[in-house]
Design a protein around this nucleic acid. Structure first.
Lengths: 136, 136
DNA sequence: CATTATAACTTGCAAGTTGCAAGTTACCCT
DNA sequence: AGGGTAACTTGCAACTTGCAAGTTATAATG
């Protein structure tokens, strides 16, 4: 846990991972403009550290060589359960903008939500995740 | 998630919560001497913030009025799944001191581990947690 | 081909946060 | 009364963050 937190214990790392994982962000620009308000120097630093830690990979786009494409590694996608539990906790205990019923459903369907997140990763599907859960 | 991380996104908060939750720490002294090496000013600050956020409570001991007893609130104990997932992730992907089989078992018995953590909280049992899982 | 635009950074600097060591205060123990 | 201990607080240097303004390499446009 201590080791995990040495890497992830800051205000931004997990948010970046979430944005790659469920919002399908791939480029520096997308993170920069995401509205969370991260400074570009910090963003560059976190991307570098996450890459060094083997959580994401960076790859230059063939179509446009200015732009990099960030993706999660296996190690990165394995953080999905942590993020999901953090989301559920926040929704339950803090005032949140997210629709409440949606979260309740996520909680009931943890496994399906995680399966969908992993499928998207495997298939390099980067459409934003709005999980369907056929409840029950 | 962003809201959760505003509170928990630092190097120490989750470690403190873990120590209360599974190691049964109750006093400032215990945290200070835990070996993680947190500075006393930071520790005091984090305890204050966690209390302000409603995650822990502080109560003066009747037996010894110098000493405070920190405990988790409901909101605090609800972080158990986050901590467990973080532990599992760390064990799987980082070199760790923790015995590997123990973690594998935890993973198979998430629900039992969580149930035990919650029982300990309800019953104010502060013996260090070495979870028994009657596998299968 | 020259100009303008864009992506992904880097740099400089002020402001905030952290870590360490050394107090301080209230209480307990003999 | 005197010494010890728990839980802080304070001062200060070092590190980290946030903001604004560059810089570089590539792409798009006239």
């Amino acid at each position: 846990m201590s080791i995990s937190l040495e890497m992830l214990g800051d205000r931004w790392s997990l948010l970046i991972i979430r944005d790659v994982m469920v919002r399908g962000f791939r480029t520096f620009k997308q993170f920069e403009e995401s509205g969370e308000g991260i400074a570009t120097n910090i963003l560059a630093d976190r991307l570098r550290k996450l890459e060094a830690a083997g959580i994401i990979t960076a790859e230059v786009e063939k179509q446009d060589r200015r732009s990099s494409s960030y993706r999660l590694t296996r190690k990165g996608i394995d953080l999905a359960p942590v993020l999901l539990e953090l989301l559920i906790w926040g929704a339950r205990h803090e005032e949140t903008a997210a629709p409440c019923g949606l979260i309740t459903n996520m909680e009931k369907n943890r496994d399906q939500v995680l399966a969908e997140v992993r499928r998207r990763w495997r298939e390099r599907d980067s459409t934003p995740l709005i999980p369907r859960f056929d409840v029950g």
